[in-house]
Structure formats: structure tokens, C-alpha cells
């Protein structure tokens, strides 16, 4: 009945069918949502749950007629999604933000460093890197808090065979066989031919990003070759509510993805 209005008014969400749900951890599920339209990794949708509100969720995967939204159960809205998603559809608005430009990472060496839920927005980037002809020049360092917190296990297994994946956890129970340590630990030893022309993508919690960038710079990366994605409170996604503004930049419009030469000037 209200289709015309729905199209005209960007605040009114549209229903999207849940095609599949993948449970990574107790608190993190990926919802495969029906969506046809242009979308890039790193963009985000507002997931809208009447009565509870809206939550910005970044796109963690893209297919011909779907987008993956990896949702972490951390608040009123996401709680409700987990409790009642069996309703088969969710209300969405978006996609918003600029997202990653995959073409930038086609040539030469590229390193993606992601921590925790920061892996979601770059999942599409790593996926793309893993299918490139020169995938042997592509590196991904993914860090999680513990083995139980790992996201995208199937993808990780697949990526391991295709590009240079370093998987690490901050801490692990005794007897754990994989890497233990922060993502920053692995940057110095990356066997890169030419760090000064290599590209990097960094996404994660603010302290992780800060120290990762310091390590990259030490290794010889140039600021202009580093891409970052910032998390802020995205309330409207439309450049109106003001919650995401930093200086003269609106993260929801101009970001969340920035070249670090710009990103480093943003000061909260």
C-alpha cells in the first residue's frame, strides 16, 4: 500500500527476507538477507526493529541477490534480532557510506589487518583478494580475542589455501596450536618485497588500529597506501543526525572508509 512512500522516504525501512543464518559464536551470527542493488564491502545498513530501534551493521558479504550482515548481540536492537529473527524477514535501510574500492588492491602486494568484528567489513575485500591471480602477494592478518570468538571459520579455511593468511588470537587455552598474540606482532615479519609500494587495509577497535598503523609505518608503508575504516555511532546514515560527525567529515557519508592521509586528520 505504501510502496510509493517507502521509495521516496529514506527513513522508512524495507522488508528483506532472511535467506540463511550462520552462527559463528553465541553472540555473532551472519544473516544472509535478500537484496538486489549496488553495494560494496565496507558499506552498512541500518537494521530496523520496530519498538527497539535501529542498529548500523556493516556488509560482510555480497552476492547477486543478497548481502550478508554479521550481527553481534550487544544491545537492545541486536538482542531482539537474535530472539525473534525466525520471523523470516528484517527491516533494512541502506546501503550507506562509501565502502571499499577493491580495484585499489588489484596490483602488487596488499595486507589486510583486521581485528574482531573488524573482520566483517573486510570479509568482502579478503574474499576478492583471495580470488585474484596474484593472490600469493596478498596477506590477511585476522585477530580474534580467543578461539571461541572466531568469525567466518569456513572462509578462514578457504582463504588459507589461496592467500597468505595469518590467524591469531589474543589468548588461548593451554594446548592451543595456532598463533597467539596481537595482530601487530606479525607485521614486522611479513615477507614483503616492497613495503613502500604495498597497500594495507586496517579495520578494528581504535587502539588496535592505532598500533597496527604504527607497525605498518615502521615496516615502510606509506600513509597514502593505507586504507582505514572507522566505526562511529551511525544513527541516521543520511548526514542529518550529526552523531557520526568528526570535524567537517560525516563518517556515514564520506566514510566509513578513508585513505589514511585523510583519516589521520580526523580528531574526535
Amino acid at each position: 500500500m505504501n510502496t510509493a512512500v517507502t521509495n521516496a522516504n529514506p527513513y522508512i525501512p524495507f522488508p528483506s527476507e532472511i535467506l540463511d543464518v550462520v552462527k559463528h559464536t553465541q553472540k555473532e551470527y551472519t544473516f544472509r538477507m535478500k537484496f538486489e542493488g549496488e553495494v560494496r564491502p565496507g558499506q552498512f545498513f541500518e537494521v530496523s526493529v520496530p519498538k527497539f530501534g535501529e542498529a548500523p551493521i556493516s556488509v560482510s558479504g555480497i552476492g547477486k541477490d543478497y548481502v550478508d550482515l554479521t550481527i553481534r548481540r550487544v544491545g537492545r536492537v541486536t538482542n531482539e534480532v537474535f530472539e525473534h529473527y525466525k520471523g523470516q524477514s528484517l527491516l533494512l535501510r541502506g546501503p550507506y557510506g562509501n565502502g571499499f574500492d577493491i580495484d585499489l588492491y588489484k596490483e602488487g602486494e596488499t595486507v589486510v589487518v583486521a581485528g574482531g568484528t573488524g573482520v566483517s567489513p573486510v570479509r568482502g575485500v579478503i574474499e576478492a583478494l583471495s580470488t585474484m591471480d596474484n593472490a600469493k602477494d596478498k596477506y590477511a592478518i585476522a585477530g580474534f580475542r580467543s578461539p571461541d570468538d572466531m568469525l567466518f571459520r569456513d572462509d578462514l579455511a578457504r582463504w588459507k589455501d589461496r592467500l597468505n593468511l595469518i590467524l591469531t588470537v589474543d589468548r588461548a587455552p593451554e594446548g592451543y596450536e595456532g598463533n597467539v598474540g596481537l595482530v601487530t606482532k606479525f607485521i614486522a615479519d611479513l615477507p614483503l618485497r616492497d613495503p613502500s609500494s604495498a597497500k594495507a587495509v586496517v579495520v578494528g577497535p581504535p587502539p588496535m588500529m592505532k598500533f597496527t598503523i604504527i607497525e605498518l609505518q615502521k615496516k615502510g608503508f606509506k600513509d597514502e597506501n593505507i586504507t582505514v575504516s572507522y566505526e562511529r555511532k551511525m544513527c541516521c546514515g543520511l548526514g542529518k543526525c550529526g552523531h557520526c560527525r568528526v570535524n567537517s567529515t560525516y563518517i556515514c557519508l564520506d566514510g566509513p572508509v578513508f585513505n589514511y592521509t585523510e583519516g589521520k586528520l580526523l580528531m574526535d
Binding site: 542498529a55 550487544v74 544491545g75 581504535p206 566505526e231 562511529r232 555511532k233 568528526v246 574526535d268
Partner: peptide, 25 residues
């Protein structure tokens, strides 16, 4: 129910809070 928008202030606590506890300024 209904969805509203209410005036917000960048000086008041909570303006920047993100899910999971992150906060700026």
C-alpha cells in the same frame, strides 16, 4: 508503535556511544 526523532546534544553523555561500549569525546 511509532518511530520518533528527538533533539540530541553533543554535550550530553551518550551522544557518541556505539554498541559494545565504545565512546568518543
Amino acid at each position: 508503535g511509532e518511530r520518533r526523532r528527538v533533539e540530541a546534544s553533543c554535550m550530553v553523555d551518550g551522544f557518541t556511544n556505539v554498541a559494545g561500549g565504545g565512546q568518543y569525546r
